[in-house]
Design a binder for these strands. Structure first.
Length: 875
DNA sequence: GTTTTCACG
DNA sequence: ACGTACGTGAAAACA
């Protein structure tokens, strides 16, 4: 028989953990669900990984325990359980019952004691025991057969405490965890410990004296110190604290190990609870079987001929494509509905059909769609110019909440509680099993999508109005989608032969470096493998380990940079990395993306993806083409105008983010610097270092520049210290000096974090929102992250608003001036056009004009520009 | 599928 | 004490 595996869960602790780690989710009827949700994801993960044969969830019972008898103040001063959490416990119990897991609580004892008692019993029976909790106290129970899992940030990140791990982490045995707590106390349980003794001191003392008792037996030998006094003064308190922290392993429990057999969940029951709690993503992902959900009937008709009477003035339309690569994949068909009649038109019926082409191109015929940019691009390929888009579900959802992940209609619809669209995966399968289903199935699926868009249009628009975001959606994102669609369809020409030549060049250099590296290492290995490279550098060559990753040694560039002086091989590896990156990503990768029909790349700009409102670019990503180093920058020589006699014209905002910060903070000093047109980093250096303009050294300017970056990112001393390779203390001093010089910035940063805490979100100039649920987390890391995000998002997001507005204005201006010049790319703070040579003089006038006045700020916006025969030359 | 690294603003 | 700078995408290795 295989060994029994017992899983013991600390119900209260895990629920608390989940509650504070996750944002306050609610189900459709307004009940809070985040604690149950976190518990569930953690439970699923552990069940999948551990496959236990026995299980129990222990809960605390009642208010008083035996610990209160010896110490009345135990757990005193504790905040009342928030009502948002209390209301979740009944659901948690229901869920555990649905999983058919035993749960247990015992008067006068805590969950810890139940778990400790059972763990000891199980160990005697030679079982393998896993304890799961959010509370590190439980680690005192770890033995060779008992592992304690503690959830870290989020709920599914779990740290495994074995005696070895505890030894490594604290240098203590599991039993000494109790002594540690006796000495340092625990504020959350109101255990006093010895005042002035924290974790560090406690560990130091225990390494010398092993236990609290032994410490006091030998305390006379300790040399006189403030700490010794404290220890002597608080001997009783320390001993009592240790007692309080000790988990009682002989609780009078009335259940036995035999009662804990676990045979798996009642899947239907679990699904019912999930349904009740609106755990849509879990329902989606689970492979639990359930009788077919009663989805609403959607009557649809597959048409083999299109007639005028089918086409109304307002309809929802959905174009079904094979996959996300809409510049190359097949169009399968389209569905359209007016809410009463729904039609599915297979591709071969709509193809080269004048009636539907005319309707799709008719500006006065309003279309509700999801992802209008994709629709426009795919139709363009069959010579149809989509017009009259009046609603875009994808963009509207993104404006309501940019954190929504997924861009398919099923996912978006579910966000608004509409469940009658199936996931694409359900219809098509995935991976090798992917296939287009028979026409009836396909037609129903696509019809359901169109119907969902129709149904959701008023609901989502209402939400936009409520949030005062309708203008942002309707006047910015929606027209921008059409512009981006044209940019993508137009594409940018790539000179393949230039890339090929560079590739051959690189190939030679790379193989030479390879040989050099093998020679220096005295063996061949895969330089691309951080793991193998780590072995060579740190084990074989004995270089000092600067930084570790969670899987081993870090070999990142900043680490290697510090090792450069230690061994010749390091510089070669850095060079190799640079060239290998160029070769694989920018030569080979880019060539794969060039369409052979027109020698162009057609990127896709993701318009509903980033949390801040920026665009992103994929297949290929044209927003990260090298520029900083000359070798890489030459890649840009391969990007050329599409027509003879044309050039590429590039215009970029200067310091847009800091100007946005000046505008929003109204800091007098920062505003003044921009109004006077000063070099902002030099000006910052003058103020921070208290020197005159000509006394600013290049190092001072460099430091000031890093501080300015830090400010935009949501400053932290640690981050700045890493960037400048200085100590944290020095970094903190820099920041302090900066904030003294720019008091308005300081005030702004503090107020934006306060606002985020109060409202739960931050906004940009055009009222784009980003929700920050972690801003109130009790977890330091999560909260700090959210605070930095609160500072950064209005800046980055407002800059994104500005350039998007500039793109719309620019499009109108080009049209108004009757120019042939075309906008091709956007790279966050710059626009790239191709233009006939004879329009350059005009562009030099109108591009900066439009960009600089897209949105008026309290400081001027400044745009630099240039042009040339390739992207490289537009510098 | 996740992790590490590195390209950009 | 806690351990990260903000926002992205692609390639390669490894599990």
């Amino acid at each position: 028989m295989t060994k029994e595996k017992l899983l013991l869960l600390d119900g209260n602790s895990l629920a608390y953990r989940a509650f504070f780690a996750l944002p306050l989710l609610t189900n459709d009827s307004g009940i809070h669900t985040n604690a149950v949700y976190g518990f569930t994801t953690m439970l699923q993960k552990i069940l999948d990984e551990e496959k236990p044969t026995k299980m129990l969830v222990a809960f605390d019972a009642g208010k008083t325990t035996f610990r209160h008898e010896s110490y009345g103040e135990y757990k005193g001063g504790r905040q009342k359980t928030p009502p948002e959490l209390s209301e979740q416990f009944p659901y948690l119990r229901k869920l555990i019952d649905a999983y058919q897991i035993k749960r247990y609580e015992l008067e006068m004892y805590e969950a810890d004691d139940i778990i400790g008692t059972l763990a000891k019993q199980a160990e005697k029976e030679n079982m393998q025991v896993i304890i799961v909790s959010g509370d590190k106290d439980l680690t005192q129970l770890a033995t060779d057969n008992v592992t304690v899992y503690i959830t870290r940030k989020g709920m599914t990140d779990i740290e495994h405490y074995t005696p070895a791990h505890i030894e490594e982490k604290y240098g203590l045995t599991p039993e000494q965890i109790i002594d540690m707590k006796g000495l340092m106390g625990d504020s959350s349980d109101n255990i006093p410990g010895v005042p002035g003794v924290g974790e560090k001191t406690a560990i130091k003392l225990l390494k010398e004296y092993n236990t609290v008792e032994n410490l006091y037996e030998n305390i006379d030998g300790m040399k006189a110190s403030k700490m010794k006094e404290k220890l002597v003064e608080n001997e009783e308190q320390a001993k009592m604290s240790k007692q309080l922290a000790t988990i009682y392993t002989e609780a009078p429990i009335e259940i036995t190990l035999d009662d804990l057999h676990y045979a798996g969940p009642n899947e239907e029951e679990v699904l019912n609870v999930w349904q009740e709690l609106s755990f849509k993503s879990l329902i989606e992902k689970s492979n639990f079987t359930m009788e077919e959900k009663e989805t609403k009937e959607v009557a649809f008709e597959i048409v083999d001929q299109i007639t005028e009477d089918m086409l109304n003035d307002v309809m929802a339309v959905h174009l079904e494509i094979e996959n996300e690569h809409y510049h190359s994949c097949r169009l399968l068909g389209l569905a359209m509905t007016n809410g009463i009649k729904t039609y599915y038109v297979p591709f071969n019926v709509m193809h080269q059909n004048e009636i539907i082409k005319n309707w799709l191109e008719d500006e006065t015929k309003k279309k509700y769609v999801s992802d209008s940019k994709a629709a426009q691009a795919i139709l363009k390929r069959i010579d149809i110019d989509l017009r009259g888009v009046a609603f875009d579900l994808l963009l509207a959802s993104y404006i309501v909440n940019p954190s929504i992940s997924g861009d398919d209609v099923a996912t978006l619809a579910k966000e608004f509680g509409y469940i009658d669209v199936q996931a694409n995966e359900t219809i098509y399968g995935k991976g090798a099993k992917w296939a287009v289903p028979e026409e009836n199935v396909l037609a129903e699926h696509v019809s359901r999508k169109a119907f969902a868009i129709w149904t959701l249009q008023p609901i989502v628009e209402q939400k936009l109005h409520e949030n005062e975001q309708f203008d942002l959606y309707h006047d910015l994102e929606l027209p921008l989608a059409a512009i981006l669609g044209r940019m993508e369809s137009e594409g940018i020409k790539v000179d393949i032969s230039t890339l090929e030549k560079m590739g051959e060049d690189l190939e030679r250099k790379i193989s030479q470096l390879e040989n050099e590296i093998y020679e220096l290492a005295d063996e061949k290995f895969n330089i691309n493998s951080p793991k193998q490279l780590g072995v060579i550098l740190f084990d074989k060559l004995g270089l000092p380990v600067v930084k570790k990753t969670k899987t081993g040694y870090s070999t990142a560039a900043d680490v290697l940079e510090k090792l450069k002086s230690k061994h010749k091989i390091v510089a070669s590896i850095l060079d190799y990395r640079t060239l290998a990156k160029l070769q694989s990503t920018y030569i080979e990768g880019l060539m794969k993306e060039v369409h052979c029909e027109d020698s162009k790349v057609h990127t896709r700009f993701q318009q509903a993806l980033t949390a801040t409102g920026r665009l992103s670019s994929t297949d290929p990503n044209l927003q990260n083409i090298p520029i900083r180093l000359e070798e890489g920058r030459r890649i840009r020589q391969a990007f050329v105008p599409s027509k003879e006699g044309w050039v590429l014209f590039a215009a970029d905002y200067s310091q847009i983010e800091l100007r946005v910060l000046a505008h929003m903070s109204k800091d007098e000093n920062l505003v003044d610097a921009f109004i006077k047109g000063m070099d902002i980093h030099t000006r910052t250096a003058m103020d921070v270092f208290h020197v005159s303009e000509d006394e600013v050294t290049s190092n001072m300017r460099r430091a000031a520049k890093a501080v300015n970056f830090g400010i935009v990112y949501g400053i932290s001393d640690y981050g700045l210290s890493q960037n400048l390779d200085i100590t944290r203390k020095e970094a903190a001093e820099f920041i302090d000096k900066y904030l003294q010089s720019f008091p308005g910035v300081k005030e702004y940063m503090e107020s934006i974090v306060q606002e985020a805490k109060q409202k739960g979100y931050v906004t940009t100039i055009l009222n784009r929102r980003r929700y920050l649920p972690d801003i109130t987390s009790s977890n330091f890391n999560l909260r700090s992250f959210a605070e930095r995000t609160a500072m950064n998002t209005p800046i980055q997001g407002s800059a994104a608003d500005i350039i998007k507005k500039a793109m719309i204005d620019m499009d109108a201006r080009l049209k108004a001036e009757g120019l042939k010049s075309k906008l091709l790319l956007q790279v966050h703070d710059e626009l790239i056009f191709e233009a006939p040579q004879d329009e350059i003089a005009i562009l030099e006038r109108i591009v900066p004009d439009v960009m600089e006045h897209a949105i008026e700020l309290a400081v001027p916006l400044r745009v630099d520009f240039s042009y040339g025969n390739t992207w490289y030359d537009a510098k």
